[in-house]
Design a protein around this nucleic acid. Structure first.
Ligand SMILES: [Mn+2]
Ligand SMILES: [Mn+2]
Ligand SMILES: [Mn+2]
Ligand SMILES: [Mn+2]
Lengths: 218, 218
DNA sequence: AATAATTTTTAGTCTTATCTAAAAAAATAT
DNA sequence: ATATTTTTTTAGATAAGACTAAAAATTATT
């Protein structure tokens, strides 16, 4: 069994590990986890001893097969709990992250299996992120960033990149939600803002926002 | 906020605190928590510093008002989660204790309020134990131990004292469950066993079992 | 290629929660 | 009233996980 601290580090490495065959840097992990680089080094050595991570001094960390299994299992728990909180307990999508951050560490295989069943095997969480199945597999829907859509193109909003409370509440205020059709009306080159149609409303959003929404095109 | 360790100690003291105005002894707490007496002394000193416990050397510990509030709030969480696990996730009553032992430490007022609502404000948990309300109040149903019933008397089974897996599974096997009517048919003085009628079956139970079942008489 | 800046690691501390062994106090027995 | 036994506390260690400050390695700049 692994400690909450270990699970959190592994999850962070999993989330930061983008480019293949390159270790995730100590500083990146430290920033993500709000700790100091020295603490990260300590933990990486411990995780390496346990073969959860491949780590060589000054070369960052990569998850081992075993480490990756733990990562997906924690992510699975996190996203299932978020789904529970929103779908069953009527939390809104901007309130659930911190609670799921705790619930994801509860130890019980059966619990998660039963929760999965209770929720009717959801494939995505309230933020549009895929939920790994029991074997760690997750379906990857092809989705693109809204900013890349051209004028007159449209698609369905299927996810957010930034899932901070602030951003999610902003989307609520603008009545932008997952599942909605979004059409690009025009693009302003002088400030990179975009005018979109959501439902029957037109609104103008900034470049930054357009870069934080995932769209699925037909 | 309090650590899991602190919450567990407080809960243990709460559970062991029976006779008024007498501190709970160090050894009793140690036994309940599977730790050593010296660890308990350490923690009692810490809890006393934080005014959660009234503690004088060699005189055991008593919860302060503040300590009692924490205790009932943790018990409330424990029992609500147990209820969730049994009523919503279809766990059986002998499987939920260890999971609730973890879930009870998740920090979020709102979470527990919403869970309470989702469960429709249950008053007792799957083992018949009362669930404290938001203010820490718990309804005390008058219930007596089955062993004290006289021949021909009857009542409804409303709780268990021992809630170990072993005992609960034994009850399942005998088809004894909460809510059932139990009538005492006869008592054997040579081994203190009792013959009872449950539903339409008669069965003989030992003294020990009769001392671990709560009955509510009309 | 040498120097400067940045990143990462090491060394040493701290806190929490545990333990063992020994000392002290309280309770029990003679 | 002593002596013995039991309970409780203290003293000293250990492990996990964090921190600061300093040293070492790497990367970037001239
Ligand atoms: Mn977490
Ligand atoms: Mn999410
Ligand atoms: Mn607990
Ligand atoms: Mn219970």
């Amino acid at each position: 069994m692994f400690s909450q601290a270990e699970e959190n580090y592994i999850k962070a490495i999993y989330a930061l590990d983008t480019k293949a065959n390159k270790g995730v840097s100590t500083n990146l992990i430290a920033e993500k986890m709000n700790t100091k680089a020295s603490s990260v080094t300590d933990m990486l050595q411990k995780l390496a001893d346990k073969r959860l991570v491949v780590y060589k001094k000054y070369q960052g960390a990569q998850l081992s097969i075993k480490g990756k299994k733990i990562a997906t299992s924690v992510v699975r728990k996190h996203r299932l709990w978020e789904t529970f909180l929103v779908n069953k307990l009527n939390f809104s999508w901007d309130e659930v992250h911190d609670i799921a951050e705790q619930l994801e560490h509860v130890k019980s295989e059966t619990l998660i299996d039963k929760l999965d069943e209770f929720l009717d095997y959801p494939r995505v969480d309230p933020h549009g992120d895929p939920i790994p199945d029991k074997n760690g597999e997750l379906l990857s829907i092809e989705k693109i960033v809204l900013a890349t859509l051209k004028v007159n193109e449209s698609g369905i909003c299927v996810g957010v990149i930034d899932s901070s409370s602030d951003f999610l509440q902003f989307l609520d205020k603008q009545n932008i939600a997952l599942g909605q059709k979004i059409t690009v009306i025009s693009k302003e080159s002088f400030d990179d803002s975009i005018t979109i149609k959501v439902g029957n409303r037109e609104l103008s959003i900034s470049q930054k926002i357009a870069h934080n929404l995932f769209i699925k095109t037909a």
